[in-house]
Amino acid sequence: MSAQPIHPHEPDRVPRNADGIAAALDGERRMEFYRELLAAAPEQAEAVLHRWWCEAMLDTDPAGDRLTEAALNGTLPTTGVTEAIARRHRAGLPVE
């Protein structure tokens, strides 16, 4: 059994490349992404792309505003670390 996203998106809303990430980001954030990517050493570029892809996916999430509002209002459902670990154990998934 493997973990599945709550809201699957096939294909990804944001392509996993520099052009796709940049297209999903707005103005200043796009420039920040490019500055960070261009300043990264070759061995760091993949990590930069991964982090900014995650940011772009969050920025383009159709439920993003609702989730942000719930988090700010304190009404976002949460799960403690203990419960998350227990779920992974029950599912036979590794816990590191």
Score class of each variant (00 low, 15 high):
residue 5 P to V: 03
residue 5 P to T: 09
residue 6 I to M: 02
residue 7 H to E: 03
residue 7 H to D: 05
residue 7 H to Q: 12
residue 7 H to A: 08
residue 8 P to E: 01
residue 8 P to T: 06
residue 9 H to K: 10
residue 11 P to T: 11
residue 11 P to A: 11
residue 12 D to V: 03
residue 12 D to E: 09
residue 13 R to W: 02
residue 14 V to D: 01
residue 14 V to A: 03
residue 14 V to I: 12
residue 14 V to F: 06
residue 15 P to H: 08
residue 18 A to Y: 06
residue 19 D to R: 15
residue 20 G to N: 05
residue 20 G to M: 04
residue 20 G to R: 09
residue 22 A to D: 05
residue 23 A to F: 06
residue 24 A to M: 08
residue 25 L to N: 04
residue 25 L to R: 03
residue 25 L to H: 03
residue 25 L to M: 01
residue 26 D to A: 14
residue 26 D to Y: 06
residue 26 D to Q: 12
residue 26 D to L: 14
residue 26 D to K: 15
residue 28 E to Q: 08
residue 28 E to M: 12
residue 29 R to Q: 13
residue 29 R to F: 09
residue 31 M to Y: 03
residue 32 E to K: 07
residue 33 F to V: 03
residue 33 F to K: 00
residue 33 F to Q: 05
residue 33 F to I: 01
residue 34 Y to V: 07
residue 34 Y to W: 11
residue 34 Y to M: 10
residue 35 R to S: 08
residue 36 E to C: 04
residue 37 L to P: 00
residue 37 L to K: 06
residue 37 L to N: 04
residue 37 L to Q: 06
residue 38 L to T: 09
residue 40 A to H: 05
residue 40 A to E: 01
residue 40 A to T: 02
residue 40 A to N: 03
residue 41 A to T: 08
residue 42 P to K: 10
residue 42 P to S: 07
residue 42 P to I: 04
residue 44 Q to R: 11
residue 45 A to N: 00
residue 45 A to R: 15
residue 46 E to D: 10
residue 46 E to R: 15
residue 46 E to H: 13
residue 47 A to R: 11
residue 48 V to F: 08
residue 48 V to K: 13
residue 48 V to N: 01
residue 48 V to H: 06
residue 48 V to P: 00
residue 49 L to V: 14
residue 51 R to K: 14
residue 53 W to T: 09
residue 53 W to D: 07
residue 53 W to Y: 13
residue 54 C to Q: 10
residue 55 E to V: 15
residue 55 E to P: 00
residue 56 A to N: 05
residue 56 A to C: 02
residue 56 A to R: 13
residue 56 A to Q: 02
residue 57 M to I: 14
residue 57 M to F: 01
residue 58 L to A: 15
residue 58 L to G: 04
residue 58 L to F: 11
residue 59 D to W: 02
residue 59 D to F: 09
residue 59 D to M: 12
residue 59 D to K: 13
residue 60 T to W: 09
residue 62 P to Q: 02
residue 62 P to D: 01
residue 62 P to S: 01
residue 62 P to T: 01
residue 63 A to T: 05
residue 63 A to H: 11
residue 63 A to K: 14
residue 64 G to N: 07
residue 64 G to S: 07
residue 65 D to C: 04
residue 66 R to T: 13
residue 66 R to W: 02
residue 68 T to Q: 12
residue 69 E to H: 03
residue 69 E to K: 11
residue 70 A to I: 07
residue 71 A to H: 07
residue 72 L to W: 08
residue 73 N to P: 00
residue 73 N to V: 10
residue 73 N to M: 13
residue 74 G to K: 12
residue 74 G to H: 05
residue 75 T to Q: 04
residue 76 L to G: 02
residue 76 L to I: 06
residue 77 P to A: 09
residue 77 P to S: 04
residue 78 T to S: 10
residue 81 V to F: 12
residue 82 T to N: 09
residue 83 E to H: 04
residue 83 E to R: 14
residue 83 E to Q: 13
residue 84 A to I: 13
residue 84 A to T: 13
residue 86 A to C: 00
residue 87 R to H: 10
residue 87 R to N: 10
residue 88 R to L: 14
residue 88 R to T: 01
residue 89 H to D: 00
residue 90 R to S: 08
residue 90 R to L: 13
residue 90 R to Q: 12
residue 91 A to L: 14
residue 91 A to E: 06
residue 91 A to M: 13
residue 92 G to W: 06
residue 95 V to Y: 06
residue 96 E to K: 13
residue 96 E to G: 14
residue 96 E to M: 11
